[in-house]
Amino acid sequence: MVGVNRSLYALICLIFVFQLSDGRSATGQDFPSSGSTAGTRVSLPPQLEKLLAEGGVPKSLDELRILEKQQQLVANLAAKCTVSVQIGSAQGCGVIVSDTGYILTAAHVAMRPNKTAVIKLSDGRIVTATTRGLYRSVDAGLIKINAGQDGGAGWPHATLGDSDHLKPGMWCLASGHPGGYDRGRGPVTRVGRILGVEEDKLVTDCALIGGDSGGPLFDIEGRLIAVHSRIGNDVADNLHIPINHYDVHWKRLAEGQSWGYLDGFKPMLGVSGNQSTGVAEILRVAAGSPADDAGFRQGDVVRRFGDVAITDFSSLTKAVSDTMPGERVEVWLSRNNQSLRIVVEIGRME
């Protein structure tokens, strides 16, 4: 799949153009304790046990109605822990997973560690949060709500599931803010089935669109099994990050590390320089590259890249690797002893 997917999928967060454990998982014990408040788990009627374990089509309309009742219960709880995440000009979703305020999201929504995010809950509360780590290879990101904003009550949160035993044909329920946060509407529920299970992604027919990135996917028992990431053109091509990636890498994510890159979305600037000199001097600008388009020249010394002070070429390399293709970044340069500011749109490594 890998070679094909690369060129097929679009990430589904929105950019406003006006400006620049006691986890149930089998694989790790690192998920935070979900704490005192109740999660999203809904007890399962015995008639649905086979559907939960194996997926498939209900045997009768009566069984379909029992499934429907279960979906209604999960949808109600799912909405409470689904949040809108806004960071700068970009907007996506997240799902709260602990009463202490950890939020799982997509890496391309969180963008970089230590950024400030504005979180909107479906009950109308607006709080601030700080981005933590990003495991970009699967598009997993972590955010934590800043302390002291819950009035001591704990945050409504999802019950964590296990993505290791998922099968095509299983039923699932997606929540999120398609098209962006809309106060008069709130989160939107979608019901579908798992169509494909791979190590690094789930495919479902829960239709997603821009703004849904980072939102939750639940199983019919109300357990969080995945987080929305990206879409293809077909309405049944919706990709989600399996939940266990967050568990396995919990420590690094919580520490605020960012690493890897998503296949097909590796950021590229298009300059080369000397790793060992004490400054980030551009020795060559690749013709037709984003740097070329933005007006970088040989001999320019990069001083600042977005929010990051650049000390040498390797710090520039790291700063570029923390961006996403399509992102517009302000860069300050020294050229002939003069200071210069240019804006570059980050490209994609082919």
Partner: peptide, 13 residues
Amino acid sequence: LVFSLVFGFLTAG
């Protein structure tokens, strides 16, 4: 303008 939204990262193919 304020409400114009675009996809973050669009792909060819």
